[in-house]
Simulated scan of single mutants.
Amino acid sequence: MTTQLAPNTQSPGEEVAAQCCSSDPGSVPRRTRGRRVVGLLGRRLLMMIPTVVLVSLGVFAVAAASPFDPLTEHLGDDYQSATASQREAVTQAYGLDGHWFGAWWRWWGDVFSGDAGWSSTQSRPVTDVIVDRLPFTLGMSLLALLFATVIAIVVGALTGMRRGGLLDRVCTGVAAMLAATPPFVVSLVLVSVFAVGLGWLPAAGARRPGDAYTVAGLFTHGVLPCLALTISMIPWLLLTMRAAVVDAAASEAVRGARARGIGGWALLRGHVVPVSVLPTLALLGTRLPELVAGAAIVESVFGWPGLAEALVDSAVALDFSLLAPLAVGSAVLVLIGSAVSDAAAVWIDPRIGLRA
């Protein structure tokens, strides 16, 4: 009996692609990685411009189609007692009688000239509101995202390497339960337990009434909202990391490493995590809208003086002078975060070859 070798059915291009995909990511020079990352960020920047324009158009179009009358919000309790001439004066002063496209065009002109408008809900210039509240939102959101990412990567790696064990079953079950729990429920539970029940932490705000902002006060008041936002971000990141570790542990590369005597932390750190962390980074870019929405809910529950709380207040009160820049800014933040996460993935493994 003779044994015949199967003919090579791959084309030369497919053979090259297979060799590239099987090569070590570390063999790609840093300069090549840098060029790919810069090219990716440049393309994302070009795509961001029309996206931001469309988002801003959508905000003004939806505002114009809203059944609510912004005049009632501008006048407040004086709406019923205001005369027709007073209502007309307020309407002209805020440009409420014009077409929404003209208001959108004027808004962009004011933004480029450095005048973002006046917030009726905050009774302050929009620029001052953003400058004062932005550090609160960025600080809490970035800390929550960092904590959630670290916890998800560590716990996901441990549970994935011990698939089917007690730790895996417990963590997977808790993550599935938390994934189905809205952020406001998590926030209310934390307030009920740690603020009302135990009295360990304050329930709302970022400082005691009448006190100035201090580092200690911000830390004490920020523990619960940061914890609530962190908990709401962990489940999907953890489950994604666990699934990626399970797949990586069953791959031929990891089996070969085990055959060479590599195991334990060396196997996890050198062969499993570098491959498994890429899906988690990709998920971070797609879950950033959830971070923005979760921050808005958490800040509203805890009375945290951030931009997300101002976004909710401006939407409820039809304060479009503040709503428009906050909505556009949220879209820009999501686009930037998605681009940065993809750029990090390309830097870690240039074989990904993202084009857009």
Rank of each mutant, 00 (worst) to 15 (best):
T3F: 14
Q4R: 12
Q4V: 15
P12V: 06
G13W: 13
E14I: 10
V16A: 15
A18N: 13
S27H: 10
G34E: 06
G34K: 03
L40R: 04
L40T: 03
L41T: 01
L41V: 06
L41K: 00
R44Y: 01
P50W: 00
T51G: 00
L54A: 10
L54Q: 00
L54H: 00
V59F: 00
A65N: 12
S66V: 06
S66P: 03
F68Y: 15
F68T: 14
L71P: 09
E73G: 14
G76M: 10
G76C: 07
A82L: 10
A82N: 11
S85E: 13
R87V: 05
Q92Y: 07
A93H: 10
Y94Q: 10
R106M: 09
R106V: 11
S113H: 09
G114T: 04
Q122F: 12
R124F: 09
P125M: 03
T127Y: 15
D128S: 14
D132K: 11
L134C: 04
F136C: 03
F136Y: 12
G139V: 05
M140G: 01
M140N: 04
L142E: 07
L142F: 10
L145I: 08
L146H: 04
A148F: 01
V150L: 14
V150E: 05
A152R: 05
V155S: 09
G156C: 05
M161R: 13
R163I: 06
L166M: 11
L167I: 14
V170K: 08
T172V: 15
G173N: 06
L178I: 08
A179C: 05
A179S: 13
A180K: 02
T181R: 08
A195S: 14
G197E: 04
A203Q: 10
A204C: 06
G205F: 03
G205P: 02
A206E: 06
R208L: 14
R208S: 11
A212H: 11
F219I: 15
F219G: 14
G222S: 05
G222L: 06
L224K: 03
I231V: 14
I234H: 02
L237F: 09
A249H: 11
V254Q: 02
I262S: 04
G264Q: 09
A266T: 12
L267G: 04
V273Y: 00
V277D: 02
V277L: 13
T280C: 08
G285W: 03
T286S: 12
T286C: 07
P289G: 02
G294L: 04
G294K: 00
I297K: 01
V298R: 00
S300P: 04
V301A: 02
V301Q: 02
P305Q: 01
G306R: 03
G306E: 06
L307D: 03
S321Y: 10
L323R: 02
A324S: 12
V328L: 05
S330Y: 00
I336K: 00
G337L: 14
G337Y: 07
G337K: 08
V340A: 11
V340T: 07
S341Q: 01
D342A: 08
A345Y: 03
P350T: 03
G353D: 12
A356K: 09
